[in-house]
């Protein structure tokens, strides 16, 4: 039956040519069309399904929690709108957390990048036992952050620590690593750098090795010194990689938790919250005395927005730098 009757469904398409009998579309063909249209999406779907489950859903659920009165044990309470946000923004500890986060981030990231580039340049030179040195740089990254914190905690102890002892030998008064704001940030930044410098060095090293060697040859022919080569060839060619490293360390830096939490035994970030970061504040609000998931979620969302803003700044910088590059290369071509 189905073969001869004109399907009303086909006519609905409007363009039905009355002179022609409509051709029956085989199922295999339909499948083929789906294959072409859907397959690419299916192939990339695992990432997005996982992201939706582990990234997007928690993100949205956190937003849902943040507008409720929500206790860790008691569970969901009343809808309170933006009260949690208002409360959190009025807390001096929240602002201390933001201040400390950015301060530790800057103190750790800038020296880290400079050291990583220099180290990478050294490793890029002709060395004996190359692999040994390259692996050696990565070694601190393998050490668990908890162990790093324990060791550095002992090094930076205010009275009995080796660093204050050494400073005393050269006539500097002991520094209150656990008492003052800036010294505590420097101490934590060294922990972060100890762990991450080697990792970034290897990324930069890989990028350095991808720089075409003829550029250096040309530079040498032009009489450029080693230093000049480094600043005029290596660093500009590393730009995209540097941007990548900056972005990843921004995200990591703004979420810093382990090192400051383990910097002393109470894990609150100091008696006056000298080194309490934003993520530690989330933990304190959600799992500390208040047990308020609502407020903790509000802080988490504010932190998310801050990271987005910083990300946008990063992105615009990236675009400007890349457009600089392309305009330069265009110029070169024109010449």
């Amino acid at each position: 039956m189905a073969t001869s009757t004109t399907s009303p469904q086909l006519n609905r398409g409007g363009q039905a040519d009355p002179g022609r009998t409509p051709r029956r579309v085989g199922f295999s063909q339909t499948l083929g069309r789906w294959d072409v249209k859907l397959s690419p999406y299916l192939y990339v779907s695992p990432f997005f399904i996982l992201f939706a489950l582990t990234g997007l859903f928690p993100l949205l659920y956190t937003a849902f929690v943040s507008v409720h009165d929500w206790n860790l044990i008691g569970g969901k309470g009343d809808f309170v709108g933006f009260e949690n946000y208002a409360y959190v923004l009025q807390q001096p500890n929240f602002w201390k957390g933001i201040r400390n986060t950015f301060s530790i981030f800057f103190i750790s990231t800038i020296p880290q990048l400079i050291i990583a580039i220099i180290l990478a340049a050294l490793l890029d030179a002709n060395l004996r036992a190359k692999t040994f040195w390259r692996m050696g740089v990565l070694l601190p990254y393998v050490v668990a952050p908890v162990a790093v914190s324990l060791i550095f905690g002992k090094l930076f102890a205010d009275q009995s620590g080796i660093i204050n002892t050494l400073l005393g030998k050269i006539g500097i008064d002991p520094i209150g690593w656990h008492a003052q704001v800036l010294p505590s940030h420097i101490a934590i930044a060294t922990m972060v750098d100890f762990r991450w410098t080697g990792y970034n060095t290897l990324i930069l090293l890989a990028a350095m090795q991808a720089i075409p060697r003829d550029l250096y040859e040309a530079a040498v022919l032009d009489g450029a010194s080693r230093v000049r080569q480094f600043f005029s060839v290596t660093v500009p060619m590393l730009r995209p990689t540097i941007i990548f490293v900056v972005i990843t360390s921004t995200i990591g830096g703004l979420q810093i938790f382990d090192e400051p939490r383990l910097f002393d035994q109470t894990g609150q970030g100091g008696p006056s919250r000298q080194w309490m970061t934003a993520t530690m504040y989330i933990y304190e609000v959600g799992w500390g005395n208040q047990k308020s998931f609502g407020r903790a979620s509000a802080v988490a969302w504010i932190l998310f927005l801050i990271i987005v803003v910083v990300g946008i700044i990063n992105f615009s910088l990236t675009r400007r730098i890349s457009s600089d590059e392309s305009s330069k290369s265009r110029k070169k071509v024109r010449r």
Binding site: L31, W34, S39, S45, I49, L53
Partner: peptide
């Protein structure tokens, strides 16, 4: 046709597999 369906099945199996893993 056989080829296509087997692909479809594979894709479907893949998707359910991931979903199962996730749950």
């Amino acid at each position: 046709m056989r080829k296509t369906t087997s692909k479809m099945w594979a894709a479907a199996a893949g998707v359910t597999g991931i979903a199962l893993l996730a749950t």
